[in-house]
Design a protein around this nucleic acid. Structure first.
Length: 224
DNA sequence: GCATTAACAGCCG
DNA sequence: CGGCTGTTAATGC
């Protein structure tokens, strides 16, 4: 169980719930800290929780058939994820790894199901979330087929800095260039070159172990 | 051409 | 020292 104050800070959707629903939600959530590099859950686990990032950065990843690391998505401050497996009652299809020290909120499956059945506000939030994700998914396909390396890196960062899916993200994020590469589907070297290029265009600033952006929409290209 | 892997030196905490 | 970064060389589609 977490405090009402923490719930309000960690979950934008809390504001859309009734007082009773909020109370129910906070009782069904625990806070857990994960160190850098620690697995939150492994592929094939029955991880019975809906998760929110309070602070930190986690990625959804898997290993290709030839043993290569592939990162699929990153989540940072304010992002809630994992409803897919929860709704379908499936085992986790991917690994979830903390890329740096992260404080997560874990809502148990029973509470999630209750909110889904009883809270209009909660459902509104989920629909918006699905809609946003679908847009990003379609953008990813375009990403793979049409964009050059710098475009892909820009898109990847645009998604990471998207305040609609990561409401607590700021203008700066602690992430290594190697991880940006893994998320972009590019090697570290090309990622480095692309970041320099984007920096030259004034779209972002690269620092050691972190990247600062000016406007996430600017990174997403035409359809944000 | 453009991206990948390998390798290495420099830098910073 | 160990992890991250910036660069270059060799190789591949």
């Amino acid at each position: 169980m977490i405090s009402l104050e923490l719930l309000n800070r960690a979950a934008v959707w809390a504001a859309e719930l009734t007082e009773e629903e909020r109370e129910r939600a906070r009782k069904g959530i625990i806070e857990k800290t994960y160190g850098k590099g620690v697995y939150v859950c492994h592929q094939g686990d029955r991880f019975n929780a809906w998760a929110g990032v309070f602070t930190g950065l986690v990625k959804v990843a898997t290993v290709s058939d030839r043993g290569k690391q592939v990162s699929l998505a990153g989540f940072t401050n304010g992002a809630w994820f994992g409803e897919g497996s929860l709704i379908k009652g499936e085992m986790r299809r991917y690994d979830i790894v903390a890329l740096r020290d992260s404080r997560l909120m874990l809502m148990d499956a029973g509470t999630f199901a209750w909110l889904l059945d009883n809270s209009v506000g909660f459902n509104r939030y989920l629909v918006r979330q699905f809609n946003e994700r679908l847009g990003q998914f379609i953008g990813q396909v375009e990403n793979d087929r049409m964009l050059d390396a710098a475009g892909r890196v820009a898109r990847t960062l645009g998604s990471l800095f998207n305040p609609r899916t990561n409401p607590g993200v700021g203008q700066q994020l602690a992430i290594t260039q190697e991880e940006v590469g893994l998320l972009s589907g590019l090697s570290r070297q090309v990622t480095n070159q692309s970041l320099k290029l984007l920096e030259g265009r004034g779209k972002l600033t690269v620092g050691r172990g972190g990247i600062a952006i000016r406007d996430w929409r600017d990174l997403m290209g035409s359809n944000a």
